[in-house]
Design a protein around this nucleic acid. Sequence first.
DNA 1: ACCTCGGATGTTATATTGTTACATTGGCAA
DNA 2: TTGCCAATGTAACAATATAACATCCGAGGT
Lengths: 151, 151
Amino acid sequence: MNSTLVNRALKHAEALCRRRGVRLTEQRKIVLRLLCVSDKPISAYELLDRMRGVVKNPAPPTVYRALDFLLEQGLVHKLESLHAYVGCTHPDHPHASQFLICDDCGEVTEVEDAGLAKSLKTAGKAIGFRTKRPIVEVLGTCAQCNAKRDE
Amino acid sequence: MNSTLVNRALKHAEALCRRRGVRLTEQRKIVLRLLCVSDKPISAYELLDRMRGVVKNPAPPTVYRALDFLLEQGLVHKLESLHAYVGCTHPDHPHASQFLICDDCGEVTEVEDAGLAKSLKTAGKAIGFRTKRPIVEVLGTCAQCNAKRDE
DNA sequence: ACCTCGGATGTTATATTGTTACATTGGCAA
DNA sequence: TTGCCAATGTAACAATATAACATCCGAGGT
């Protein structure tokens, strides 16, 4: 994400937190910015490293607490299959996302296919299952890497 | 899974491995049996504990190697969101599974919705993404736990 | 039967990810 | 101001997973 978009995303996050009456503190904002700036997912300990220099003595709880908050607010997502985190590309509204994860270049694309989310939910409902959090992470190779390989 | 079904599953796995020319060794069979016997997912270290007494001095690589093999052969699945493993309930054919995970009782239901898998794949294809492994894990509460709570 | 080669296992250590527990700080409201 | 609760600091530790290298064992060729 370029710096203009990052600033916009941060402004947006601030407004959203203000509306909700929760505090987007400095540390939380730092973590959010780090995730937004990167176009690839970042692990908790990688975030920890990148916080040094900005924060005095960051320890694991520092970053995990910030991540917990941001996840709760829907501002970032966790990629379970990578043990890594990404900034949410459209935090405007609560939503169930799906992720396309390129295992070649590592790039992650967040898509929001409401139809897919709905049919998942419906499939569960059919056997009495009440859906809370649907996790969809598709591992494969992105268009760019496919093109490269096919040259 | 009851013992009759477990034995059937093991026989099946043996036949399948023989056909493929790979070796379902004793340790691998032990891990597979442990997973089949349980109706809940088991973590690698829990498997390690349960192997003591059956295997002499099992170490982490012991169980991870067995799991790697079984995963490759499609005989077990990994639940990324739980860091745990389950025996595959229909290993007859390669397939993309989805899992319904009850975060109350811990029970996991494997479903195989080919339509869902296909629409995932198609959605990726639309943007040039080549799907290898689609991960679908739906967190929520199962019918039984919902009933209990609504009493 | 013997050899040999590669896959499977043994063993030790270490890397990576995430949590617990308790002390301290800091903002906000009565 | 005071009191409270959320947020942060700090140290230790738990849980998950892998690396690296030695050894064993079994199928296939001779």
